[in-house]
Design a protein around this nucleic acid. Structure first.
Lengths: 241, 241
DNA sequence: CGCCGACGTCCGTGTTTCGTAAGGAGCCGA
DNA sequence: TCGGCTCCTTACGAAACACGGACGTCGGCG
């Protein structure tokens, strides 16, 4: 009995975010049997962390979450890269629907829902967005720096850089948002997905990144320090060709 | 029937380089229907010649070409001028990806690919490489002075000013409210966010700012003193060009 | 089990920036 | 011209800040 639906992309990665263990369990079970690789998260920060570790092909997102709500999670996720999102909303709550669509959800399912319906929607959205997982997620290139988010590779002037996960994400974020100054808090939120924590963590990772991409790490030109504010990625600092 | 997708840059010129007539035909067809002006070349020299005749806005380049290969074509093309390039590579060939990164492709598509995906990538790259002119993006400009709050950069007649936080905020406030006179109390409230404090603080910072932006700090023309009142930012004083 | 890399945290240090004080110069009205 | 008030200028101590080095932990891998 071929249980796998015709359009289930083999091994597409789905991240399920719901604070209700029962719901998450059922949904996970169905998606798993449908042939997807399923990851689970119980709240917003958890979701962002897991997404950072393994970028999902689609996110099933409960609108109501403890702490950071679904809209916020969706917005931040989109900050890292384009990803289709299916929202789970309270029954017939029109406001929720509107909010969901505004924030850019690709579809929504109202509770209570049938798990089979959800699976169908997942398939549908994946089919719809499949040819374009790369709109905006293509190669990032600024000056002599190139980052390939899909392959998780980065090069400078043609030579490959060996970056750690954090360094890579940090650099990728900078390439996606060149020229702007970011406070450590923002970087911590956008790259780490944390709302709190020691900000010196950011400082240290910036230093480590600099050590790998700057010609003279003591006098950085690519990732500049904005005194009293944070850091800024300067496109002009990347050794142009 | 308006077939043109919303994001097609009107009449952008795309050069398709592929030695396989079938592939070239299909790609050309899709790009043409998407609203682009498409040119075709079957090999390297041909591509260079056509590029010389009509410089393209973007090149879709097969990596495998008879004679001169895609990397060489890309390199030579770049020698004549900056142009975005999308590489067509063999499926999942990691080496090709690396090569694409090194040689400076802006994106790559692995064969076999869906023509629709290619069109989306073309749009994406064109959108990316043609950054919208920063109009209404919060950039403040008066005369020769320019302040970019997001980047936290300030320039005078094109040369960068190195301002401290307070100086920057002060200047930004002035640029946002030109021509009006402000009491020290107001500046302290608006820029510092304090309702109390030594007003000489404002005086000193105004002086420091003057030292960095005035041609002759002893006879300030940009930030003028309004006797018995406070200070006024005078647009006419900014060295217009 | 031990090794090693990645990560987050902490601390000492040098530098930058800030706020205030104080003396001198400038402006204004009598 | 003089006195009073305002503004300019300089200087300085204190605080804030960024940086580099180092350490302990955790997890993966041999």
């Amino acid at each position: 009995m071929e249980q796998r639906p015709p359009h289930a992309e083999a091994g597409a990665r789905v991240l399920v975010v719901d604070d209700d263990p029962t719901v998450a369990e059922i949904v996970t079970g169905y998606l798993d049997r449908a042939g997807y690789v399923v990851d689970r998260a119980g709240d917003g920060p958890d979701a962002l962390a897991r997404a950072a570790a393994h970028w999902p092909d689609l996110v099933v997102l409960d609108l109501m979450l403890p702490g950071m709500d679904g809209l916020e999670v969706c917005r931040r996720m989109r900050g890292h890269g384009p990803v289709p999102v299916i929202m789970l909303t309270a029954r017939g709550d029109e406001d929720d629907r509107i909010l969901g669509l505004e924030v850019g959800a690709d579809d929504y399912v109202t509770k209570p829902f049938s798990p089979r319906e959800l699976v169908l929607r997942v398939e549908s959205v994946l089919r719809r967005t499949r040819p374009a997982p790369a709109v905006g997620s293509g190669l990032l290139r600024v000056g002599g720096l190139a980052v390939d988010p899909a392959a998780r590779r980065a090069t400078k002037n043609g030579t490959e850089l060996s970056l750690t996960i954090r360094e890579f994400d940090l650099l990728a974020f900078f390439l996606r948002n060149p020229g702007r100054a970011y406070a450590r808090e923002e970087l911590m939120r956008e790259v780490w997905g944390w709302d709190f924590g020691d900000l010196s963590t950011v400082t240290v990772h910036v230093r480590r990144l600099r050590g790998k991409i700057e010609d003279d790490p003591a006098r950085p030109r690519i990732v500049q320090t904005v005194w009293g504010v944070g850091y800024r990625f300067d496109p002009a600092g990347t050794g142009e060709e």
